[in-house]
């Protein structure tokens, strides 16, 4: 297909997607070691958001973190992004400690954080124009990259619209294109589908896997850390699901999702899918229940 072709060209430019290297999925791309995060509020007892959190994310892996609201999922993601620093332990990318935000780790925010004064095209090209991602590119190359990302997410025809003129699903696509345009090695996604209606959500789950490259060999995929509170979404997308619990936020279980790729509607209907969903739900049910009555 035309779109896939464009995407492969975009991917080929990313460092770390070289098939000649050792089997990519076996190397730890991101590593969280005994990570803790306390928030100090003046005049109140410090609250512990995350504690003793240890997790490796392999190159090319699609890792999903699920857990009830308030379990510190977003804090973990923010530490990976470099937007927050851990108060204990280490967070590393390729063995190098993460000291701040950087273009190698792209973030997709929960309500997308699209710049309201920029059109779709302006948003997608923002990082290329003002950040290091596009500093080596000519204006023409930048425009070509932006166009390929527009094609990739299927926003043709809406390039010159402002975010407030877009539907929720289109905004989500624009944010995804902006993320991919900077060609980060790691994609960090904070509940990117939470604000969408159920049907749009299913469609965009499929799209997300296509763009991630689920029908290509694991070595040419990007590393994704994806946060959600929807268990079925986690099972459908993930290679592994990390289940978190609250007070303090800890890693409760790491569950392999052996469902075959590419995944599609048949996957959702399969008994294995149902069983995995049930299993994860059983892990967090008690806590989720308690959260609704306290």
């Amino acid at each position: 297909m035309h779109e896939t072709g464009v995407h492969e060209r975009a991917l080929a430019a990313i460092p770390g997607h070289d098939a000649a290297q050792a089997p990519a999925h076996e190397r730890a791309k991101l590593r969280l070691q005994d990570v803790g995060k306390r928030f100090e509020t003046a005049g109140r007892a410090a609250s512990v958001a995350v504690q003793d959190f240890t997790l490796d994310v392999a190159q090319g892996e699609f890792l999903v973190i699920v857990g009830p609201s308030g379990c510190g999922k977003t804090t973990v993601l923010n530490m990976l992004a470099g937007l927050e620093r851990p108060t204990a332990g280490r967070v590393t990318l390729d063995g190098v400690e993460i000291a701040g935000p950087g273009p190698a780790r792209g973030v997709m925010f929960q309500d997308y954080a699209l710049f309201p004064w920029q059109t779709v095209r302006g948003n997608i090209g923002f990082g290329l124009r003002h950040g290091p991602a596009g500093s080596a590119l000519s204006a023409k190359e930048r425009a070509a990259r932006v166009q390929s990302c527009i094609d990739l997410v299927g926003l043709n025809g809406s390039e010159d619209k402002y975010p407030h003129e877009l539907s929720g699903g289109m905004r989500q696509r624009a944010a995804l294109a902006r993320l991919v345009a900077n060609e980060p090695e790691v994609l960090l996604m904070d509940e990117p589908l939470a604000a969408l209606d159920a049907q749009t959500r299913l469609i965009l789950q499929d799209e997300l896997l296509r763009i991630w490259g689920q029908d290509r060999p694991a070595a040419s995929r990007r590393t994704v850390v994806f946060i959600t509170h929807a268990i079925d979404e986690a099972v459908f997308l993930a290679d592994r699901v990390a289940v978190m619990t609250t007070h303090p936020g800890r890693l409760k279980a790491l569950i392999d999702i052996p469902l075959a790729r590419p995944r599609n509607d048949a996957t959702r209907a399969s008994p294995e899918f149902q069983a995995l969903t049930q299993h994860i739900w059983s892990l967090i049910r008690d806590e989720a229940y308690r959260a609704t009555v306290t």
């Binding site: 992004a81 470099g82 937007l83 701040g100 935000p101 950087g102 273009p103 780790r105 792209g106 973030v107 925010f109 309500d111 954080a113 710049f115 923002f126 990082g127 003002h130 950040g131 290091p132 991602a133 900077n182």
Partner: peptide, 15 residues
């Protein structure tokens, strides 16, 4: 100013 807009720019490495 929406904090996340600034965060978004920071994660793109914008100075």
């Amino acid at each position: 100013v929406d904090r996340r807009l600034i965060d978004a720019a920071r994660t793109m490495g914008v100075p």
